[in-house]
Nucleic acid binder design. Structure first.
Length: 337
DNA sequence: CATCCACCGGAAATGTTGGGAC
DNA sequence: GTCCCAACATTTCCGGTGGATG
């Protein structure tokens, strides 16, 4: 169960590509117990590097994902659970959880990582951040997001002014860096000589997202008889897409998946895909799968959540000859570059 | 200048869930 | 059981957007 293959995402090897600048900023921030706001595109090693950095810090540490914990209450529970190491049952009042967390952080210097913060802010506002920012203790708050450079426009001013986070931006990996990291993982997990150089070059030139790269390598290895060739790598593209997509959608609900499917279908059928089309297609799909459809208002929020994962992209129109709507398209992360 | 497009998105109302007390 | 309650999920309601069109 605890087996961790070097191709798995959860594997935390020593970095072969040093993100010198970012690392240093991170460490300095941690030493000074500063609040940090880390941002950058998906698959740039934000979470990875942060986890590494707090690993050997002499303090209480806690790292939660706000994708799964997208309300203040859920997040508080998760945080308390991680800090105490005990299971936290439901049934507590929010204020009770807050009090218990306060006790914990007052006792010991603490670093708190809120990964994928966007999802919580979108869903529940900044109440949690406000509470955490006002804790009078040795607390370093580290927020990570793929979508927003600046926290100040995402949270209320009263929250931001007490947080005053130091910003750290992550740039996408270069082709060479992707190559290096994947080669390293391959050395650690595959038989010698089983990965052709051209195959790896092809992957490295097709994506800047390390998570996609790793998925690609893993899917390829899965399909390979004894060597991973460039042809093989090209042949599995579609499956890589599907695997990566599924990875995100699985964390969301069935309705998110149906919505995505609707968009996917429409994307192949017509030039532009608008919200209204998506909704009616989604209703059809619901009927086909015997699901009760949600209202359009609700699905509008769901679409935003899918957008936050980076699987789709939307262009918003607030009036004009197109009316007030948004155009949605599938993001193709394998041939983007 | 009024009207229309085709939804957006805030806010309030209502429904659901699950624990705790009785 | 069942009553109550908080958190959470979803629905209902509705004002709003700005260029194109008549």
């Amino acid at each position: 169960m605890l087996f961790r293959s070097p191709l798995e995402e959860s594997f935390l090897p020593e970095p072969v590509v040093d993100r010198e600048t970012e690392s240093q900023q991170l460490n300095t921030g941690l030493e000074n117990l500063q609040n940090l706001h880390i941002h950058g595109p998906r698959g740039t090693g934000k979470t990875h590097l942060t986890k590494k950095a707090i690993e050997d810090v002499e303090a209480n540490t806690c790292c939660i994902s706000c994708l799964e914990n997208d309300t203040q209450y859920k997040a508080l529970r998760q945080i308390l659970q991680e800090l105490t190491g005990e299971e936290v049952r439901t049934g507590y009042h929010t204020s009770e959880l807050q009090r218990k967390i306060q006790e914990q952080v007052e006792a010991l210097e603490t670093f708190l990582v809120l990964d994928e913060l966007d999802f919580l802010l979108l869903n529940d506002g900044d109440d949690l951040l406000y509470f955490l920012s006002r804790l009078n203790a040795d607390l370093g708050l580290i927020t990570i997001t793929a979508n927003h450079k600046d926290l100040s426009c995402q949270v209320e001013e009263r929250t931001f002014s007490t947080l005053q986070p130091q910003r750290i931006g992550f740039e996408p990996f270069t082709g060479e860096e992707i190559y290096e990291v994947l080669a390293d993982r391959a050395r650690k997990s595959l038989k010698p000589q089983s990965l052709r150089r051209e195959a790896l070059t092809y992957i490295a030139s097709s994506t800047q997202n390390l998570k996609v790269g790793l998925t690609w390598l893993r899917v390829s290895a899965h399909h390979a008889e004894d060597t991973i060739t460039e042809t093989l790598v090209k042949d599995v593209k579609k499956e890589v897409s599907q695997t990566y997509t599924k990875h995100w959608l699985q964390k969301l609900t069935d309705h998110h998946q149906l919505l995505y499917q609707a968009i996917e279908e429409l994307d192949t059928e017509q030039e532009v895909v608008q919200t209204g089309d998506v909704y009616s297609r989604y209703k059809n799909l619901c009927q086909a799968y015997n699901e009760h459809p949600l209202t359009d208002r609700r699905t509008s929020d769901y679409l935003k959540q899918i957008e936050q994962t980076g699987l789709i992209q939307s262009q918003y129109y607030y009036g004009g000859n197109k009316g007030k709507t948004r155009e949605i398209e599938i993001v193709d992360f394998l041939t983007q570059y």
